[in-house]
């Protein structure tokens, strides 16, 4: 009985820790500006006003920061394009490499693994200048492609690592059975292996998407206009505008978080099993 009670208190503390910061910001995003200054926890007179700015519902363009806020929908589209491309590139390049590492014994596989692990340990700031110059020399600055390529390279090693672990949990006999049943090696891959590993692929894909959605440094470096700027950069631009009320920043933050949050809720089980299982397995 006592044990039960302490378990629930423990759980409550964990829930508060995990949610309170975000909950507060969400609450603030519905507050009129004056309520924030009163250090409230809950909006007394909830308003959608802070969000309206982003979608020009009442078109008060005189508001501070309105020019940037109006770019929000476009920035979200940019982030979607970049994130989706990064996800697809991760899945194709990652699953091919991981399949080879998990299934086909070959000379140099250890070397490749170390290469991937080494790539993962290179910090972004260490390559930002050469990357910037590289993108500039190819004329890729302020394009989606530059951000897509950089995001893909820093998510790919992790993707390969996770997928390799995940693929190794699939019994080899399944593909053998498919071969005996009349599939070519490629047929066994497409008809049996890929469907069976879909949960892992989805987990890794979502992971790459969210990582790309949240990445900031390269997005900040490579993009200069709304033609390619993703939401994270826009959100920080916005916050650096003087005199933008925090309630409006909070609303923007909530808008940025919304999609990754929904994705992580929807695919929660897959992500937890896919990532956890293959890192430790």
């Amino acid at each position: 009985m006592w044990r039960r009670a302490s378990l629930y208190i423990y759980a409550l503390v964990a829930v508060v820790y995990l949610t309170l910061p975000f909950a507060w910001v969400t609450a603030v995003s519905f507050m009129p500006e004056r309520e924030v200054t009163q250090q409230r926890w809950w909006p007394e007179e909830p308003t959608m006003g802070n969000y309206n700015l982003y979608f020009q519902v009442d078109g008060r363009s005189a508001d501070v920061g309105a020019a940037i806020a109006r770019q929000f929908p476009r920035a979200i589209v940019n982030s979607l394009i970049i994130g989706t491309a990064v996800m697809l590139l991760n899945l194709t390049c990652g699953s091919l490499a991981a399949y080879a590492l998990a299934r086909l014994p070959f000379r140099g596989n250890l070397l490749l693994l170390l290469f991937y692990l080494g790539s993962r340990s290179v910090p972004g700031v260490a390559i930002m200048i050469p990357m910037y110059l590289l993108m500039r020399s190819y004329g890729l600055l302020d394009t989606h492609l530059s951000v897509i390529l950089s995001h893909t390279t820093f998510t790919l090693p992790f993707t390969i690592w996770i997928l390799k672990g995940y693929f190794q949990t699939v019994p080899l006999d399944l593909e053998r059975a498919a071969r005996v049943d009349g599939c070519t090696p490629l047929g066994a891959l497409v008809r049996v292996f890929l469907p069976v590993t879909t949960p892992g692929l989805v987990a890794v894909g979502i992971f790459a998407f969210i990582a790309s959605w949240g990445e900031f440094l390269f997005a900040l470096l490579f993009t200069t206009t709304i033609a390619s700027r993703p939401v994270t950069v826009l959100a920080s631009d916005f916050a650096q505008e003087l005199q933008v009320p925090f309630t409006v920043i909070a609303a923007g933050g909530v808008l940025v978080i919304l999609l990754p949050l929904v994705l992580s809720f929807l695919f929660q089980r897959l992500i937890i099993q896919g990532i956890g299982g293959s890192v430790t397995g």
């Binding site: 399944l174 053998r176 005996v180 049996v192 069976v196």
Partner: peptide
């Protein structure tokens, strides 16, 4: 022209 039964059965789970 063969068929095979595996120790783990290897039924396609999907």
């Amino acid at each position: 022209d063969i068929a095979m039964v595996f120790q783990t059965y290897a039924l396609y789970p999907h």
